[in-house]
Nucleic acid binder design. Sequence first.
RNA 1: GGAGAGGUGGCAGAGUGGUCGAAUGCGCUCGACUUGAAAUCGAGUGUACCGAAAGGUACCGUGGGUUCGAAUCCCACCCUCUCCGCCA
Length: 437
Amino acid sequence: MLDIKLIRNQTAQVQTALAKRGDYDLQPLLDLDAKQRQVEKQRSDLQAQSNEVGKLVGQKIRQGADPAGDDVKALRASGNEIKQTLSELEPHERELKANIEEILLTLPNLPDDSVPVGKSEAENVEIRRWGDELIAAGRSSLPTYETHYDLGERLGIMNFERAAKVAQSRFVTLIGAGAALERALISFMLERHVKAGYTEIMPPILVNSESMTGSGQLPKFAEDGFKCDRDDLWLTPTAEVPLTNLHRDEILTADQLPINYCAYTPCFRREAGSYGRDTRGLIRLHQFNKVEMYKFVHPNSSFDELEALTRDAEDVLQQLQLPYRVLALCTGDMGFGASKTYDLEVWLPSADKYREISSCSNCVDFQGRRANIRFKASGQKGTQYVHTLNGSGLAVGRTMAAILENYQQADGSVRVPDILQKYMGTETIGAPSSESP
RNA sequence: GGAGAGGUGGCAGAGUGGUCGAAUGCGCUCGACUUGAAAUCGAGUGUACCGAAAGGUACCGUGGGUUCGAAUCCCACCCUCUCCGCCA
């Protein structure tokens, strides 16, 4: 959520920044704001009068006045009169506030000045690449690449048809080494992040609407979520939701910051509006696993923390020896709550291109304000909103896809990345002798 | 799901219609005493909005209501705890 004071006092700057992301007219909001403040002033003045009358009545009665006498009666009448006016102002003010809130909740975050301006993903800017030589080496050793889903089904480690029978399309069942590889990846990633100073969290993965609003999924993106209607509970689309809301409505102390969390959770997305895209394989599923990193930080350090967060995600890919590149997302491609985002894209040889595998964002105070998460510096007056960051570290299913494709061998088997071998207890998946049901 | 109890400031805990944003204790901050510390004593110690300031307004789980006046009375909801049932 944007700061209404900022919108009020620096309208032109906000307008310019928002224009980089789309078409937003702030005038209706400013009109409502002015009206609301005026009504609030009226109401609070009246309230003061009313309190005065109340006090007087109390005083008189305590001094022995007849509670039914004319003196008190007159006061009661004037109290009633004030109350009459108040009863008209109050709902009006409430409505104005609700309208303002409603608009504020639908405005996206302001892009940082360093974010490239652009309309679509075509205008994202490549920042760096890692592992070009691995791509070249792969190309020279294998003439063609099997897709991860053909490979997975051939080896009997994943099954889409049966998953569709059990649930729907866009689900997968992992079998044997497939399931083990997924689990190995989760363990490896979590252990890596814990070593790097993140505290492991296992949060609820059903969350209420307030939580979905706090992190920015609601009210605008209700269509993307799976909802349990009877309970006001949603299946988390990302661990970012429960992690943000862990500290909702809290006032932290400055010395608690930064707080670094990591969490493995399943994630659930309807993928509304993506019919026909990535219909096969592990790339776009309604349910997938993700290890998420999350930071609550001091406003002064959030952009440094974004660099650190991105490096943490990159380290996972480097340890897995998977080629990738880092993109700075342009204003048109960034998520709703982000002020600046780096995407990591992993190399998928069967498609001969890079695909998103991680997204690392600095939301600055956007979620802090929505979820009311503040901190207080000792000796300082007042509170400030914390800055929050989130990053995938990594999307597990997509990592599995990248491993299967990049590590496939001429004999049709897949070599297990060195770092995962101790988790898997094996060096190869689908060795010629292996059988599957 | 059934029966009962309860939700007050960082914590504990008073407060059942009026001057209560809220006693008291603990904690915390600053100061005094001390070579230093402990102990003791003194002062302070919630959040947000409006206002240049003085000051005003709101908040005692949440939302409504009664009243000149609500932490206190009424209604609804949420949450927590205990017992029973069910259950990994």
